[in-house]
Each structure stands twice: as C-alpha cells, then as structure tokens.
C-alpha cells in the first residue's frame, strides 16, 4: 500500500481507539445504573431537603389547636396551608418561629385580605364553596366572629 493511504489508515485507527478509550473514562460512574441516566441523580433529587413538614407533626405540640381544627369546617385544610412552610420550625421550634412564612396571615396586609385569599366571592369558584362579598369584610374583622381553627360561628 502507498505511504499516503497507510498513513491515513493509521491516523484514523489511532483517533478512533483514542476516542473509544477516552469515552470510557468520561462516562460518569453511576451512568447506566438503572437506565440511560446517572443513577446518582435519583438519590440527589430524593435527598433534597423539605421545606414543608407534615400536618401530624404540628400536633406534637399544638394540641389545643388540634382539638378545634379536627371537628371544624377547616379540617380539610392542612396546617401549612395557612401557616406556610414550617419544616424548620418542627426541627427547632424555639429558634425558628416562622411567623413571616409565605401563606401565613402575617404576609397579607390584613387578616381580612388573608381570609379573602380563599373566600372572596367569584363566579369561577364552585358554588358549594363558602364565599363572602368583599363588602362584608369592610367593617368587620373576620376573627371577631370566626375562629380560624373552627370557623363555624357559635350562637
């Protein structure tokens, strides 16, 4: 074979072998553990930290609230729906109070605005859902008559 052709063949084979070897080294260690992806990635995602806790954790301390909440109309609403993400509070209740968490009443301009974030009247809402006119809250503070943990008004 001519020198030119043989040199080209040699160069190409060297390049291909180099490529194959380098590729082997560049594949991440857990790639292909479960499929065409990094197996480690599943563990990384599964181990991300929680910001919301579970409702039952709240009642380890807040028994009084539980007693009201469990029998009232708001029992379908989990604690963190109105108090915000409080995983940090369950870990260290003394240090982290979490009063300013998103979704908590403190992040709304007033308690009326907070209640209206769910209960304002709207044509788009299901009819069975209790809704109030904004005017109803103009002169009244919701918590004067309603206990948020047990919203039914006792007569």
């Amino acid at each position: 074979m001519r020198k030119f052709n043989s040199s080209i063949l040699v160069i190409l084979s060297v390049l291909i072998i180099l490529f194959v070897v380098m590729r082997l080294f560049m594949i991440p260690p857990t790639f292909g553990e479960f499929g065409w992806y990094r197996g480690e990635s599943v563990r990384e995602i599964a181990n991300q930290s929680h910001k919301f806790a579970d409702t039952y954790r709240c009642f380890e301390c807040h028994i009084k609230e539980y007693a009201y909440w469990e029998v009232g109309g708001h029992s379908t609403v989990e604690c963190e729906s109105c108090h915000g993400a409080l995983k940090a509070h369950t870990i260290n209740p003394e240090e982290y109070k979490g009063y300013g968490e998103f979704l908590s009443p403190n992040t709304y301009p007033s308690i009326q605005a907070f209640c209206l974030s769910c209960h304002s009247e709207s044509t788009s809402k299901p009819e069975s859902f209790p809704q109030v006119k904004v005017s109803h809250t103009k002169y009244w503070n919701c918590t004067t008559c309603h206990n948020p943990h047990y919203p039914e008004v006792e007569r």
Partner: peptide
C-alpha cells in the same frame, strides 16, 4: 379548585 394559588406559592417555596 377555588383558584387561591396556594399550590403555586407552596411549590415555589418547596
């Protein structure tokens, strides 16, 4: 659904 947007907020926080 009442369109309160709490899911959107919670998702953003979490």
């Amino acid at each position: 659904c009442i369109g309160c947007g709490r899911c959107v907020v919670a998702c953003k926080v979490e």
